[in-house]
């Protein structure tokens, strides 16, 4: 048996060092992930130049056509170019992902700083955060989108709200730890103004963990958008997103699985890349993780 496993191991050992996450600096996997993500972002930015058709132009005569020179990935049920839709879909999905992560981090940072620093605000704020966190996020998001009416902005808002408490908790815990540090106590004793303490002394501590958190929020937001579309609470298909292309295409899964496959592949690759980059960033930034590398 041993003699049989050895060659397999040997063969598999070849790429092993390449796969090592953050083995020495930025490893191969995060590197590949960054390249993939960069390609997706570039495609989104230059969508008008690399697509052959308008992603919303319908031509009923061209419904559900297989791939051809004119339509490299074929067409959807309205005769729209699937490739154009997937590429334009990257725009909205990324806007929602990045938007939700920026919003939740900024709002969460503000609330977390205040909550961590002012004891009297803390109790109230944290009860509210606990309440928000207790509500099932996807159900909350469906409710918000369905009640307020779907648009990119409502979807982004609905995804952001449930993420805020997690950021607040993170920031608060960092602030609580930092405010007892001698340099912060010294600054308070020296009569440094409050905003300055928050801004100069406390906030920088949060940057590293927040940037890691932001990548995860971004990935989860893109995924949540897809789930919302699937459940019928997503953005109109006039604005293609990976989620709503799949949601619309699932009716045709038996005859044209590409309608789910291509946007699904783009979405999975994108999220996979973001998660891997997030993992790598955490490994580099988290000193506890560094020890595990030994």
């Amino acid at each position: 048996m041993a003699s049989e496993t050895t060659p397999i191991r040997a063969r598999l050992r070849l790429p092993t060092h390449l796969l090592r996450p953050g083995g020495g600096g930025f490893g191969m996997v995060p590197m590949i992930a960054s390249v993939v993500l960069a390609l997706i972002v570039l495609a989104a930015l230059f969508a008008p130049f690399i697509t052959l058709h308008d992603p919303v132009q319908m031509s009923p005569a061209q419904r559900l056509k297989p791939p051809s020179a004119g339509f490299p990935l074929g067409t959807d049920a309205y005769g729209r170019d699937l490739m154009a839709r997937v590429i334009y879909g990257a725009r909205v999905s990324l806007i929602i992902g990045i938007g939700a992560s920026i919003c939740s981090v900024v709002i969460g940072l503000a609330i977390g700083l205040v909550s961590g620093f002012f004891r009297y605000a803390d109790a109230v704020v944290m009860r509210i955060m606990d309440g928000l966190m207790a509500m099932p996020s996807v159900l909350l998001a469906i409710a918000i989108v369905s009640l307020v009416g779907p648009s990119i902005w409502t979807v982004m808002f609905a995804i952001t709200i449930p993420e805020i408490p997690r950021v607040v908790r993170l920031v608060r815990s960092i602030v609580l730890a930092a405010r007892d540090e001698p340099y912060v106590e010294a600054a308070i004793a020296a009569g440094t103004s409050l905003p300055r303490i928050l801004w100069r002394h406390l906030m920088p501590n949060t940057f590293a963990p927040l940037s890691v958190q932001a990548t995860y929020v971004c990935a989860s937001a893109i995924l949540t958008e897809a789930i919302l579309s699937f459940l019928g609470a997503g953005v109109s298909t006039e604005t293609p997103t990976w989620g709503n292309i799949m949601a619309e295409g699932r009716m045709y899964f038996l005859i044209k699985p590409e309608l789910i496959f291509w946007p699904g592949l783009a979405l999975s690759l994108c999220i996979l890349s973001i998660n891997l980059i997030g993992d790598a960033a955490r490994d580099i930034l988290d000193p506890r993780m560094a020890r595990r590398k030994e």
Binding site: F230, G243, R250, D279
Partner: peptide, 19 residues
């Protein structure tokens, strides 16, 4: 490679939509 394989699979697990 066992470690890397398991970890890669696990990232994949939450990168693909449930449906």
């Amino acid at each position: 490679w066992v470690d890397h394989l398991i970890m890669s699979l696990s990232v994949l697990g939450f990168s693909v939509p449930v449906f």
